[in-house]
């Protein structure tokens, strides 16, 4: 298959970027999207040009490092899949594909398609943890947890922190990410104890870092590669409001 790629190139955080057009040819339908970019970069290196910088790590859909806004969609076409899990068979031969970095004030571009998602780490550091001893593996059955609660917690814990939610949101809101973290811990007895403090601290950090206000459009859940539901946002709202009203 042959493709025309319109890729955002930007030398560094301070430079002004622009789209550059590239051609790639003889790509097999089973090539992954990132492999297709590897092939492009290989060609660029051979031509003595600067390869396109993009984020990736595990390439198996579990680390949350890959990003990219492809043809107007975070993580490209395909539901519940990270960019590394998108294959070129999702596109038509001869397609022009536009590739942009995440766009959100809190995620500044570092180079080309790479953005700084450190803001999410800062939100986690503000409260996305449980203060328990972690030196030895505890007995899995020491604290019985109802199946429904465990399932809901695990659904939320599937969040890989990729940033697609804020990148997709027209309000640049990080609510789905924060909600997933608050919800996954709030549903477990170990995390429940610090629930109020956690919700307040993480929301305060999220606001401080300049993320926007959620208006419940639901675009985040549509684009989340892990299918995290906005029901977790409702739980975050509950957790936060309850905590504030008790203060």
């Amino acid at each position: 298959m042959n493709f025309t790629l319109k890729i955002w190139r930007q030398k560094d955080a301070k430079s002004k970027g622009a789209f550059e057009t590239y051609k790639v040819s003889d790509i097999s339908a089973d090539t992954s999207f990132l492999e297709m970019l590897d092939i492009l970069n290989n060609n660029l290196v051979h031509e003595g040009k600067d390869p396109v910088a993009f984020d990736h790590d595990c390439r198996e859909g579990i680390c949350g490092m890959c990003s990219l806004h492809i043809n107007g969609l975070a993580h490209g076409p395909g539901q519940n899949a990270t960019t590394c899990q998108i294959y070129m068979r999702k596109f038509k031969d001869g397609d022009t594909i536009t590739i942009e970095p995440w766009r959100s004030a809190a995620f500044p571009v570092i180079k080309d398609l790479v953005v700084n998602r450190g803001a999410y780490d800062q939100i986690l550091q503000a409260g996305g943890y449980v203060s328990v001893r972690t030196n030895s593996v505890p007995d899995a059955n020491a604290i019985p947890i109802p199946k429904a609660d465990a399932d809901e917690s695990m659904d939320a814990a599937a969040c890989v922190g990729c940033g697609a939610c804020a990148a997709t949101c027209k309000n640049g809101s990080a609510m789905l990410f924060v909600a997933a973290r608050v919800s996954s811990l709030a549903k477990l007895p170990q995390g429940r104890v610090e629930g109020a403090r956690r919700a307040k601290a993480m929301v305060a950090k999220m606001d401080e870092l300049g993320f926007g206000n959620c208006t419940n459009t639901g675009a985040c859940q549509a684009e989340c590669p892990k299918g995290i539901s906005i029901a977790h946002i409702a739980r975050l709202n509950r957790e936060f409001l309850r905590a504030k009203l008790r203060d």
């Binding site: 970027g17 806004h69 107007g72 539901q79 766009r103 027209k170 309000n171 640049g172 926007g212 639901g218």
Partner: peptide, 20 residues
């Protein structure tokens, strides 16, 4: 607030997300 949070640089291509 939301307009600011979105940042100055906007996407060149946007698509309607399903269910929005």
């Amino acid at each position: 607030d939301n307009y600011r949070a979105r940042g100055k640089q906007r996407y060149a291509v946007t698509t309607k997300e399903p269910g929005v």
